[in-house]
């Protein structure tokens, strides 16, 4: 596909984006599409980070306010918000982020496990870290994003 992938067999392509002013990324293989913001229909009794559900060409998708999920500063909703539609195994969800930044190919040796620090909210969602052009990019653990079936109905 790209030259970057050829450099190392173990390179992972990441989609990086800004959320709550921080750099995050997801494995591009999980990304189905990127689309502009849409008005969500709110779900009763949903946790605060679940904005509701949106219509993606006839499919009903939950929309996650990623900043809220990560415990970050939630900025004002603007039309510039972007929704990254990702596959989480069996289900598909939309992640609301501030803006999409770049596509990066990161060799596996350049990724490191997050330091074992006192667990804050964010820590649980980061599976690895990498440095690109002096910026730390957090790689999201997508499976931790959606609450368990049992957890969510609170």
């Amino acid at each position: 596909m790209t030259d970057n992938t050829k450099k190392s067999d173990t390179a992972t392509e990441l989609l990086s984006f800004l959320v709550g002013g921080q750099d995050y990324s997801v494995d591009i293989m999980s990304v189905r599409e990127i689309r502009g913001s849409a008005k969500a229909t709110s779900l009763p009794h949903a946790p605060p980070f679940v904005r509701g559900v949106i219509n993606l060409r006839g499919t009903v998708l939950p929309l996650i306010d990623l900043a809220a999920r990560l415990g970050l500063e939630t900025g004002q909703d603007t039309d510039r918000n972007v929704i990254i539609v990702v596959d989480l195994g069996e289900r598909t969800v939309g992640l609301m982020v501030d803006a999409v930044s770049d596509i990066l190919a990161i060799p596996e040796e350049d990724m490191q496990a997050p330091p074992d620090m006192a667990a804050d909210e964010t820590h649980n969602f980061v599976s690895a870290l990498t440095i690109v052009d002096g910026r730390m990019i957090r790689i999201l653990d997508l499976n931790a994003i959606m609450p368990d079936q049992n957890e969510e109905a609170a």
């Binding site: 008005k39 969500a40 229909t41 779900l43 009763p44 009794h45 949903a46 679940v50 509701g52 559900v53 949106i54 219509n55 006839g58 499919t59 009903v60 998708l61 939950p62 289900r91 598909t92 969800v93 079936q149 969510e152 109905a153």
Partner: peptide, 21 residues
């Protein structure tokens, strides 16, 4: 896609493209 929501059976898409529960 999401899970069971108490009191809600399903969703639908209305004429304006919006989802209604």
């Amino acid at each position: 896609s999401y899970g069971r929501v108490a009191g809600i059976a399903a969703a639908t898409i209305l004429g304006d493209g919006q989802i209604a529960l």
